[in-house]
């Protein structure tokens, strides 16, 4: 079972947790790190789309992760039809996640990145039980709604005493296709203010992009993660 684990969370849906997860994983893998992704968004498992994975296979009662762009990906996406609503009752959330973590041939990983679902619910608590030493990276946008949910999410992880890597502002700006001018998408001050108030580093301000891993903007976050990975595992500290 992977030891070093980074949760990509944020509270709000649609802020790019999954694309940041995929982009960061690809970027770290390209830098030579052994990276796994667990898609914990059981009702909206999108990593299968981002990595274009086939339904996962099982060999000798163990799930074989999809291996794409140097990243091992475990997701329930692709197992059910895309239009099928995946509804999970409380009793099975923990057992399902445990299966997707423990019954998997991960091999050696430098880092397991977990793409968390929106909100703060059973899945978040189940992941905390499975990975009590995980660190969390918050993704938000400058939208007041996303920021509000992010603040609640930070509060949630504070209660769990989860170490926090920092905040990433996604979709902070875009480049005009006509003049190339950088234009803000939301209030540019909001997320930096939240980070400052809470005392977390603002790790990056990513532009709107079809694929975050394609641009250089992911480099700062990647380097932060590489430095973080050099630190002793939390459980050993």
């Amino acid at each position: 079972m992977p030891q070093k684990c980074l949760l990509v969370a944020g509270g709000k849906g649609g802020i790019g947790k999954s694309t940041v997860t995929a982009g960061l994983a690809r970027s770290l893998a390209a830098a030579g790190k052994k990276i796994g992704i667990l898609d914990a968004d059981l009702s909206g498992p999108n990593q299968s789309i981002l990595f274009q994975t086939e339904p996962l296979h099982v060999i000798d009662n163990e799930i074989v992760p999809a291996y794409v762009d140097g990243v091992k990906v475990v997701t329930l996406g692709g197992i059910a039809q895309r239009e099928t609503a995946l509804v999970w009752s409380d009793p099975v959330i923990q057992s399902t996640l445990r299966k997707l973590v423990k019954d998997v041939t991960w091999g050696h990983l430098d880092l397991l990145i977990i793409d968390m679902p929106p909100g703060s619910g059973k899945i978040h608590l189940a992941i905390h039980e499975l990975f009590p030493s995980a660190t969390v990276l918050f993704v938000t946008t400058g939208s007041p709604l996303a920021a509000a949910d992010c603040i609640r999410q930070i509060s949630f992880y504070k209660r769990l005493k989860t170490p926090m890597l920092g905040i990433l502002e996604n979709y902070s700006h875009f480049s005009c296709s006509c003049c190339g001018e950088k234009q803000a998408m939301y209030d540019t001050e909001l997320v930096p203010e939240i980070a400052a108030d809470i005392g977390l580093p603002l790790l990056a301000q990513l532009p709107w992009s079809k694929n975050p891993a394609d641009g250089n903007e992911m480099n700062d976050l990647r380097e932060t993660c590489i430095q973080w990975l050099k630190q002793p595992f939390a459980a050993e500290r």
Binding site: P55, L56, H57, V58, I59, N61, E62, I63, L76, I79, A80, T84, L86, V87, W88, S89, P91, V92, S95, T96, K99, L100, D103
Partner: peptide
Amino acid sequence: ANSVVLEGDRIVILGE
């Protein structure tokens, strides 16, 4: 309780 089971070479979501 499990609604995701490993059946031979594939993962099956029983409820679906």
